[in-house]
Amino acid sequence: MLKLGPRPSRADARAHLSTPRRAVLELLVEEQEPLTVAQVAQTLDQHPNTVREHLEALARSGLAKRDQLAPVGRGRPASVYTYAPEASFTSPEYAVLAQVIIGYLTHVVPDGPELRRHAREMGRHWGRAILERAGGEPAPTTRTAGAAVAYLRRMLDRTGFAPEMQREGADQTLRLPRCPVLELAKDRPEVVCSAHLGMAREILASTGGIEPDRVSLEAFTQPGACLLHVRSVAHPGEDLVVGPVENAPAPARPDEVVPARPVANPGTASRGA
């Protein structure tokens, strides 16, 4: 099935895996579908027993999730494995904390436009934190749009978005094929994607000369990536466009309070579609 939007970023936790085990996890992340031992073994050209050992180790560490297929005929039903959302975080506790913060924000600020404004402001604070940690990556001395976008690209790469530059005349677009908080973005795109937009605007503002209304974001509108646009002039359209996201709740009406979603236990969290 065609899936819109980016894929998860590669987490720091994967750096400690052996090369064969990391390859198994990467396959789960890339496919984003439940896979059997036989499917993984065939794709990676490894022995099923070896693959089963890797998959079970990933499940024990919380980087993968094991489920059982519905029984068909006699015999034990086959196990299937998917990557766990926590595989996109350095620690599962960061995933839980992020879910709690976003759930609380959507509970206390139910109004759509006001919620997005708060999320953008949250993103601006995030952007400033990224700049403070940049350390050895000073802002460009040349105050041009090209230098500013190149600097933003480096900051986004450090953050896990794996950005790719695209140009359309005087306008520039950063294609974002990875997302460090993909499951949260699917669950609450109006909050997470607005925060991403605010973060990008803050980083660009630090370089001088790029006004916020020149920066917009298309999220989950095409297969494989989101698109961050930096235009030569202000764009009159929506600053944030979110495509159809699987698992996302319907937008709230101004008079409707949306309760926070329950936070999944990090050991049993569902991967989502």
Rank of each mutant, 00 (worst) to 15 (best):
D213A: 09
D213E: 12
D213I: 02
D213M: 06
R214H: 08
V215N: 08
V215T: 15
V215F: 11
V215R: 02
V215E: 13
S216K: 05
S216Y: 00
S216P: 01
L217N: 11
E218N: 13
E218W: 06
E218Q: 12
E218D: 14
A219M: 05
A219G: 07
F220Q: 09
F220G: 00
F220D: 04
T221H: 13
T221G: 15
T221Y: 08
T221K: 11
T221W: 10
T221E: 15
T221D: 12
Q222C: 04
Q222Y: 03
Q222L: 01
Q222N: 00
Q222V: 01
Q222A: 03
Q222P: 03
Q222M: 08
P223T: 00
P223E: 06
P223G: 05
P223K: 00
P223N: 02
P223M: 07
P223Y: 04
G224M: 10
G224V: 05
G224F: 04
G224T: 02
G224P: 10
A225N: 13
A225E: 09
A225W: 00
A225P: 10
C226G: 13
C226N: 15
C226M: 09
L227N: 10
L228G: 01
L228H: 02
L228C: 04
L228Y: 03
L228W: 05
L228I: 05
H229R: 13
H229N: 12
H229F: 09
H229P: 10
V230E: 02
V230M: 11
V230C: 14
V230F: 02
V230L: 11
V230Y: 00
V230H: 06
R231P: 01
R231Q: 14
R231T: 15
S232M: 13
S232V: 11
S232P: 08
V233C: 13
V233R: 14
H235L: 14
H235V: 15
P236F: 05
P236R: 01
G237P: 07
G237H: 04
G237D: 04
E238V: 10
E238M: 08
E238G: 05
D239L: 11
D239Q: 04
D239I: 02
D239H: 11
L240N: 07
L240A: 10
V241T: 13
V242G: 10
G243W: 01
P244W: 03
P244V: 05
V245W: 02
V245I: 13
E246Y: 07
E246T: 08
E246D: 09
E246Q: 14
N247Q: 12
N247K: 01
A248F: 07
A248P: 01
P249Y: 06
P249K: 03
P249T: 03
P249A: 11
P249M: 05
A250T: 10
A250E: 10
P251M: 10
A252H: 02
A252S: 15
A252V: 09
R253C: 08
R253K: 07
P254V: 08
P254G: 08
P254D: 09
P254F: 00
P254R: 09
